[in-house]
């Protein structure tokens, strides 16, 4: 079952000068077709300006295709009548936690979404409790969001999306502004949602270590999908990734450099454990 399906998706921006005259057209997403299976953890990589965020914004109908079609849980995102259903099915978390939290108290913030769609009060509280537990923030439910760290705020944002009972969560560089601990907390919470709650995860990131456990990776370049495969398949192609302005995890790069010096190591080593084993230790 595919939760997201894009067929020949193209999205064009019209650039205008100061007087509003058309200067040109930029194709941000160029004839992309992809499928995301229900329950998968999918990563999207790509350099700045490669079109990954534009692609992501189509999945919860923030943007509508110029050409082609996107279906979320079988619903066409251009269908105005389905827009709210689509946004409930596919929730989005952005880079800056401060732009996503509106409540004065953590639990109020998480309850905001369900309240807006008319969920009965008692059920709102159930959802708030579940969601905060799922991201490990339940003990902070009475806190003011101002008192939380970046990683904690970002987990509250995720809980807010989770309270809408989505089938799919799209996270657009959720860890870009966080310190190492915050980054770990958020990624752990996201993996938990995927594995325990079975929520489909689409993660956009510039941190290669965050996606070594993904089921599938898409690499975007100039609006197109340039590479597609498992993390091991993708990270085996060090030179190609570098040409696309990307990187590999440090352990992968170390193994790759040693391999070039003649140490017999397999391609695409992803973890320290694999590396130690491959060295015969």
């Amino acid at each position: 079952m595919n939760i997201v399906k894009a067929e020949n998706l193209t999205y064009e921006y019209i650039r205008r000068d100061e007087d509003g005259n058309v200067e040109g057209i930029t194709t941000a997403v160029d004839d992309v077709s992809l499928r995301v299976k229900q329950g998968d953890f999918v990563a999207i990589l790509g350099h700045n300006g490669s079109g990954k965020s534009t692609l992501a914004k189509h999945i919860n109908a923030i943007l509508s295709p110029t050409e082609g079609t996107v279906w979320v849980d079988g619903k066409d995102t251009r269908d105005e009548e389905e827009i709210w259903n689509i946004r409930q099915t596919a929730g989005m978390v952005f880079q800056n936690p401060d732009n996503q939290i509106i409540g004065q108290v953590v639990e109020e913030d998480v309850g905001f979404g369900p309240e807006n769609i008319g969920v009965p009060t008692e059920e709102i509280w159930e959802r708030v409790t579940e969601s905060l537990r799922a991201v490990g923030m339940y003990q902070f439910r009475k806190y003011s969001p101002n008192k939380l760290s970046g990683g904690q705020k970002q987990r509250v944002s995720i809980a807010g999306v989770l309270a809408m009972h989505p089938k799919c969560i799209i996270l657009d560089e959720p860890t870009a502004m966080l310190d190492p601990n915050g980054r770990k907390e958020v990624i752990r919470a996201v993996r938990g949602l995927n594995q325990v709650e079975g929520v489909t995860v689409i993660l956009i990131t510039h941190y290669m270590e965050e996606i070594i456990h993904a089921d599938k990776v898409f690499v975007m370049d100039r609006g197109k999908i340039a590479m597609e495969g498992t993390p091991r398949e993708i990270f085996s192609q060090v030179e190609k990734l570098k040409a696309l302005r990307l990187d590999v995890p440090q352990v992968t790069l170390l193994a790759y450099n040693l391999q070039k010096k003649g140490v017999p190591l397999p391609d695409g080593i992803l973890t320290t454990e694999e590396f130690v084993k491959a060295l015969g230790l």
Partner: peptide, 9 residues
């Protein structure tokens, strides 16, 4: 380098 791709960083 926050938010930049690896090459940009």
């Amino acid at each position: 380098t926050a938010g930049l791709d690896p090459k940009g960083r």
